[in-house]
Amino acid sequence: MMYKLVLMAIACIFIGDAAYPQEDVPNLKDPKMIAAGHDLFLQKQCSRCHGEDGKGGVNLARRDLDPRGVFQSIADGRMGSGLRMPASRDVLTDEEIWKATAYVMSISQQAK
């Protein structure tokens, strides 16, 4: 029981950690940031599972996404749906993750 409580507390700390205050979200509409994000998307092989344009494999353009959720998906990875996306926290810097987020947002449904 105690153990479970501690686990919960740790989980909460992590979730808290990932929720960035508004002012920390960089300007995701900056074309330079989007372009750098696409370079990274190819270099880090996000394209391996999402296609070079984000529309192959698991199609990101069809998803309704918000920037914080995208940041968190990239940082902590995705599991549970039967598919798996590796976590990138500490493998990519926060700045790099935001760049990738900018690119993903530029192709997602929301951007239209």
Partner: peptide, 20 residues
């Protein structure tokens, strides 16, 4: 592609994917 054994999620494959 650069060699980087700490870049855990990126395949050491010399491409951005496994082919279209």
């Amino acid at each position: 592609q650069k060699d980087d054994p700490k870049d855990y999620g990126t395949g050491h494959i010399g491409a951005s994917d496994f082919g279209r």
